[in-house]
């Protein structure tokens, strides 16, 4: 199953349209799309507006390929599950997002194993075809579900120093 998701906030019809159009041309492929508040309703693929988080995680676990907007939530979820993922950045110029950080993050993500960035609709279709041809078979290494030890240690330290800070504050 191919699981496509637009993320959790703003609509992203461009992604839904490409994936649905592609699905129409590949009826043998099972495709499920989470489309959020988008206007475009898929004609070929199965779809859902919004899943509960646990249901969402199950869809990720049971898919062979994820297609998502280039959001950290989608990327990290795919990585945690070890699923290959095609990331399609939202465009600031088209009003699909409020800052251009998705395009900026594209360059950092595109070289990771198991991650493919589709810069436009044609590239997205091409990558879906490549998946069908067995060319996107690399999966990301299943990552841990925790932040780096360095960050965890610093945050823990910050939290435990809060006691001392409070005491000092009261002592003033």
């Amino acid at each position: 199953m191919i699981f496509a998701t637009i993320g959790s906030m703003l609509p992203f019809d461009r992604l839904v349209q490409v994936v649905d159009g592609w699905s129409g041309e590949h009826p043998a492929q099972e495709v499920l799309i989470q489309l959020g508040q988008g206007q475009y309703v898929p004609r070929h693929a199965k779809w859902v507006r919004m899943m509960r988080p646990l249901e969402f995680n199950q869809s990720v676990e049971s898919c062979e390929l994820m297609v998502a907007h280039l959001g950290m939530g989608s990327f990290i979820t795919a990585m945690q599950a070890g699923k290959p993922v095609i990331l399609f950045p939202r465009s600031l110029a088209l009003g699909e997002i409020t800052s251009d950080h998705q395009r900026q993050a594209a360059d950092w993500l595109r070289d990771k194993p198991g991650v493919w960035v589709a810069d436009d609709e044609t590239a997205l279709q091409g990558l879906l075809d490549a998946f069908c041809a067995g060319q996107l078979s690399v999966s990301p290494e299943v990552g841990s579900r925790s932040a780096s030890n360095e960050l965890i240690t610093h945050v823990r330290q910050f939290i435990h120093e809060s006691r001392g800070q409070k005491r000092e504050h009261k002592g003033e």
Binding site: G7, S8, M9, G71, M72, G73, S74, F75, I76, T77, R145, S146, A147, L151, I152, T153, V155, R156, I159, H160, S162, R163
Partner: peptide
Amino acid sequence: RIKVLAIASGGGHWVQLLRLRAAFEGC
């Protein structure tokens, strides 16, 4: 125990916050 309020918007903000859970142990 230290009271921690861990807060984030949806999507990636929330996913990153959940990855910090180990730092909140004991709180």
